[in-house]
Design a binder for these strands. Structure first.
Length: 615
DNA sequence: AGCTGGATTGGG
DNA sequence: AGAACCCAATCCAGCT
């Protein structure tokens, strides 16, 4: 069975996508469930076999409340994220989604054309994570008026009463029918095209990522506030009164001001600080740490100390702790697909920039452990697999790809191997890295051809596409203007220089895009696969007490953190070994999902322990 | 008062 | 040390 859900009012409409398949949209009558009973309705269908794939407008909108009620779902299709992928992808059949003038990369139901794509063939939504998943569920939650009872099969249209409800119906992207129609369009766009399998895998992985992001926020990263506070007081001094600076900062500031002979100097103002430095004979262009370090004035050392402490205080000080850590959990907001390449972004809490200094605050609960796993040299391994470069893949057999590259004879030291590989992926042209790249090109021509081709495509203004089908954005109008200006008869050397510069910049972007984006896809598959494996390990002990926030994770191993190529799993001690095995197996599985039988290793550095500091 | 862009520093 | 790619968060300056 399958269900679509949508809506933001007091009632939620569910469409059985199997029953509705082949039925004209106007004839589809959603089952209406009061919003308060949505959790129970979903939980009931999740308990069945096979479990449905929920199709909904936006995981971020629907899932947190379900999680708070202790309800998890196994799989979904996130229309917003998938629309963004399909809208930009050169692999997707364009007409189905682009028709009607949808320009925004964000799915906006108010701009969508009337559904005109034929209903997908039965089971079209079966995704690669479960080829036997023949039961997509579209869940459309629909705003409607008062007095609707929840009997299945009842027409939602009869429920529209108040003008407020009508207004919500008109423009609500979560509307059941809109969701159902958009789902049809997305299936049409991703079915029967070359590369459909990859695209479907990407849509499934992206949607799983949306579930994981919500679950990680709900589950949280175990964070000991008292350990964090101890670090702060050790480094900054005791917590100051509001408005006052911590002792150590105050001292560093005073020493700096004294050395500069300006007792009233405001150190946080770059222009004023710069002028003061100049007056003291320190002729730096900026207050950048590396520039300052080259000078020997007595103000430099305390100033650098002040800047370091200031950073800790403002980014991860007591205020951060109070805002982001509650009940022993750090709950950042992860933003799947938030970066053009497909990497995740974060919003609030600075989840992607936790300084290593504070890692000691990440401590497992009593009776629990942390599993911290990261992939060694993920991006070059992904590159080797994409390019089917067997020599480079072979260099990555074992644990250290850079050592393997040295063994291949391309370069002489591990440090040079690292510089050469990073230079190849980032497009270095100068410096030591730039000089080493040609040596790599000689030994790994296939891998280098892939990134070089991507760079040339970008320089031409073409889009490039990741392994699973996420395409780079096209060049901006400004970019085209710069290129056009350089080809005019009256173009001067400055025009030409600008155009060449813009082309090269874009070439470096597309060069990196294919590798970074495919690495992000590997990580998504790793996590999505791991999530299902961890769920199969089941809960431990007896669930006790009433459901509370986070109850969905209270007794089971769960993903607690993700950062590009690293994950942290928080697990009951009884499940440590099984969870660690799952982490490894999921990595191997991700490699097979993306690259089939191509012989490429993705070795994990995997540590198990109580505190992330000791690991 | 609120926005934008620059500078800086943390992460991969 | 960095460079070269992708970011977020903070503070400040300068603008409307």
């Amino acid at each position: 069975m399958g269900w679509a859900a949508g809506g933001t009012g007091r009632n939620v409409a569910l469409i059985d996508t199997d029953a509705a398949s082949g039925v004209a949209d106007s004839a589809i009558e959603p089952a209406v469930v009061p919003l308060a009973q949505l959790g129970a309705a979903i939980a009931e269908r999740e308990a069945g076999t096979p479990r449905p794939r929920w199709v909904w407008s936006d995981t971020e909108h629907w899932y947190p409340e379900l999680l708070a009620a202790g309800i998890r779902i196994e799989r979904c299709h996130d229309l917003r994220l998938c629309h963004a992928i399909l809208h930009g992808s050169v692999l997707a059949a364009p007409a189905t989604l682009h028709q009607g003038g949808v320009e925004s990369s964000t799915w906006d139901a108010t701009n969508l054309p009337a559904p005109n794509a034929p209903p997908p063939p039965p089971h079209a939504a079966a995704a690669l994570f479960d080829l036997d998943d023949l039961a997509p569920v579209a869940a459309a939650v629909e705003a409607s008026g008062d007095g609707i009872d929840g009997s299945e099969g009842r027409a939602a249209s009869g429920a529209v009463g108040s003008s407020q409800a009508s207004a919500q119906r008109e423009g609500d992207p979560a509307d059941a029918h809109e969701s159902f129609a958009e789902w049809h369009r997305q299936m049409a766009a991703s079915t029967g095209v070359p590369g459909a399998d990859r695209l479907k895998l990407l849509l499934a992985a992206e949607s799983a990522g949306a579930l994981i992001a919500a679950e990680m926020r709900a589950g949280g990263l175990p964070w000991r506030a008292e350990v964090h506070e101890q670090i702060l007081s050790d480094v900054l001094g005791p917590r100051p009164q509001p408005g006052a600076l911590p002792e150590r900062m105050e001292r560093a500031a005073a020493l700096t001001r004294a050395a500069l002979g300006e007792p009233g100097l405001h150190l946080d103002s770059q222009p004023r600080l710069l002028r003061a430095l100049h007056r003291n004979g320190v002729f730096v262009e900026s207050t950048n740490r590396w520039l300052l370090r080259e000078h020997t004035h007595p103000a430099i050392e305390p100033l650098l100390e002040y800047k370091k402490l200031s950073r800790l205080l403002s980014a991860n000080g007591w205020a951060w702790l109070e805002e982001w850590v509650h009940d022993g959990r750090f709950r950042p907001t992860f933003v799947p697909g938030g970066v053009v390449t497909g990497r995740w972004a974060s919003s609030g809490g600075g989840a992607l920039q936790i300084p290593k200094q504070l890692r000691a605050a990440v401590v497992a609960d009593p009776g629990w452990a942390l599993i911290i796993a990261d992939v060694a040299q993920l991006e070059p391994r992904v590159l080797a697999a994409m390019a089917r470069d067997r020599s480079m893949a072979k260099a990555g057999n074992g644990t250290d790809l850079y050592a393997g590259i040295v063994a291949s004879g391309a370069v002489d030291t591990r440090e040079h191997a690292k510089l050469a590989v990073l230079g190849a992926m980032y497009g270095a042209t100068t410096g030591e890295s730039g000089r080493l790249v040609p040596q790599l090109r000689r030994v790994f021509p296939d891998a280098m051809k892939l990134v070089d081709d991507a760079a040339r495509a970008g320089e031409r203004g073409d889009t490039v596409t990741t392994w699973l089908g996420r395409s780079s954005p096209p060049p901006s109008p400004r970019w085209h203007e710069a290129q056009a200006a350089a080809t005019q008869p009256d173009a001067d050397t400055a025009d030409e220089r600008r155009a060449r510069q813009a082309a090269r910049d874009r070439g470096r972007f597309t060069r990196n895009f294919v590798v970074q984006g495919t690495a992000a896809e590997w990580s998504l598959c790793w996590m999505a696969d791991l999530r299902l494996r961890l769920d199969q390990l089941g809960t431990v002990g007896a669930a006790s007490g009433a459901p509370r926030s986070g109850a969905a994770f209270s007794q089971r191993p769960h993903l607690a953190f993700f950062l590009h190529d690293e994950i942290i799993v928080h697990t009951p001690l009884e499940r440590v070994d099984a969870a660690a095995t799952a982490v490894r197996e999921a990595a191997a599985s991700a490699g097979r999902l993306l690259f089939g039988g191509f012989p490429v290793d993705f070795p994990l550095e995997l540590r198990v322990g109580h505190s992330s500091d000791e690991l």
